[in-house]
């Protein structure tokens, strides 16, 4: 039963409610970092990592700080603070201990400090699982699953997009549509294809 639920969450955030194509979260990196495949992949990895980690952190903040003291209204403020400082911390940490890794991931980490997809997953977690959670461990598992899978879904779409955009370079696109406009049209068509997954039942 539990496993089934987890599977459903995974399918839902990867395909049915994909963060980019159906919730419109993280559009800035989607448009900005999808011109080449390699950066898109690194961006996806970074986002997945940060999403998973911040799901854990915000879970802790919510269930051990906000809920016991009945200050849930400070959710927005506290979440953005912990996420932003966590990302900064990671950035400093990597810079210190692995300059090679920093050269690959540093710039993406800086970009996702205030990424709406990362913040979105935290808020979504708290709406869906934390508000009505009676069992903290169970809620944690749900949060981590959703965070990780949202990152996977983000990466998949970013990769597809980067492949398509590399091909678009060669295309004879009408001048006003070049760049961002055609990227949105492609995103729209991809979103149509993803509509096929709507209403999945398992």
């Amino acid at each position: 039963m539990e496993l089934n639920q987890l599977f459903m969450i995974a399918i839902s955030v990867i395909f049915i409610n994909n963060f980019i194509l159906s919730k419109f979260l993280g559009l800035c990196p989607f448009i900005g970092v999808s011109k080449k495949t390699a950066p898109a992949f690194y961006m996806g990895l970074a986002v997945t990592f940060v999403m998973t980690a911040s799901s854990i952190i915000t879970w802790a903040v919510y269930s051990f700080l906000l809920k016991p003291f009945h200050i849930e209204y400070l959710r927005t403020l506290s979440f953005i603070l912990v996420i932003a400082s966590f990302v900064q911390l990671i950035e400093m940490f990597i810079q210190k201990f692995s300059p090679a890794l920093y050269r690959v991931f540093g710039i993406y980490l800086a970009l996702i400090t205030t990424n709406c997809a990362v913040f979105g997953v935290a808020v979504l977690n708290s709406e869906m699982f934390l508000k009505s959670a009676d069992n903290a461990v169970k809620a944690l598992i749900f949060c981590v699953t959703q965070g990780f899978c949202a990152g996977v879904g983000f990466t998949i779409v970013l990769l597809f997009m980067s492949g398509i955009r590399e091909r678009l370079e060669l295309c004879d696109i009408p001048r006003p549509m070049k760049g961002m406009a055609i990227a949105f049209i492609v995103a729209s068509l991809m979103s149509m294809a993803f509509m096929g997954f709507s209403g999945f039942r398992f």
């Binding site: 492949g163 398509i164 091909r167 068509l189 149509m192 294809a193 096929g196 709507s198 209403g199 039942r201």
Partner: peptide, 23 residues
């Protein structure tokens, strides 16, 4: 599993998006 009775067109459209990567 889906709510649409037929999936062929969605499937092909989806895979069209993957073609550049496959190539």
């Amino acid at each position: 599993r889906g709510s649409y009775p037929e999936g062929v067109s969605y499937a092909i459209l989806f895979m069209n998006a993957v073609v550049p990567l496959i190539d």
